[in-house]
Design a binder for these strands. Structure first.
Length: 264
DNA sequence: ATGTCACAGTAACTGTGA
């Protein structure tokens, strides 16, 4: 007996400010599980009742005041596995759960890394690199089929940004970041499910700055959000797409959701 | 490219992070 499972991931840029669009998304898309990043809310102020009304009765929250914060809401049982602190500074950037079928689901919000891609003058950039280094140590020891998703804040391929030439020195697309992400991918032979279903150089942006006068017309996007799976799950993956229209909804997040369907 | 968001502290702004 096979089970269909739809998993979505969305950097929501404040879950409270986005209640209208997140509920619209759940109504239209009806994923079984939604991974959120940048919830920007403490756990006791998380609008869990709204999600419960929509059938998302299983919720694992890892929030903090003001910044960052991740959460997983689900229609099917999820059991909390861990909440790791890959920066060792107390920020809420990861939560991992286990599904009843034994698959792990890891939801991560990698640090943006500040403006200047030089850790000697910008400590945030160093923290971002250290964060991913610790992820590599963790990832290389994983021994269960795992789905790793979230806002990685790195656009790894030339076709993952609107201009490779103009962004090569911009944090999110620098050589050191792209190499680090490649090492993370190699550490578990992760399958980049976005590129599995939409091979390079297909345009597959997930983020567009708020600062553009017309985000869609200029289309200066980057692929910062990702869903990776253990190789043994590849046969279970049915489809994957970026729900780009959500970027055009009223009071949008600057990220669009990822939607992946599995069959187990 | 100083453009646009959200949050919190202090009271219509400023600072921070993105």
């Amino acid at each position: 007996m096979s089970q269909n499972l739809k998993i979505a991931s969305w950097n929501i840029n404040s879950v409270r400010a986005r209640l209208d669009i997140v509920t619209r998304f759940l109504t239209e898309e009806a994923p079984d599980i939604l991974c959120l990043q940048e919830t920007k809310v403490m756990n006791d102020a998380f609008p869990g009742g709204i999600f419960r009304q929509m059938g998302y009765n299983h919720q694992v929250l890892h929030g903090q005041p003001m910044h960052h914060g991740v959460a997983i809401v689900s229609k099917i049982p999820i059991r909390e596995d861990d909440r790791l602190d890959w920066q060792a500074n107390g920020e809420a950037r990861h939560v991992g759960v286990r599904l009843d079928n034994g698959v792990r689901l890891e939801n991560v919000y990698v640090p943006a890394g500040g403006e200047v891609p030089d850790h000697t003058v910008n400590p945030k950039f160093g923290q971002k690199l250290a964060f991913v280094e610790r992820m590599i140590e963790w990832s290389s020891k994983l021994d269960k089929p795992t789905i790793l998703t979230g806002d990685f804040n790195i656009a790894p391929l030339e076709c993952d940004v609107w201009s490779h030439k103009q962004l090569i020195d911009v944090v999110s697309h620098t050589e050191v970041e792209c190499e680090l992400l490649a090492r993370l991918q190699a550490s578990h032979n992760w399958v980049d499910i976005g590129r599995h279903f939409h091979p390079a150089p297909t345009r597959l942006y997930t983020w567009w700055s708020y600062r553009a006068r017309d985000w869609a017309a200029s289309d200066r996007g980057r692929r910062l959000d990702h869903m990776w799976i253990s190789p043994e799950l590849l046969d279970n993956a049915v489809s994957h797409r970026v729900a780009e229209p959500c970027r055009n909804w009223a009071r949008p997040s600057d990220h669009a959701p990822l939607v992946t369907e599995f069959r187990f």
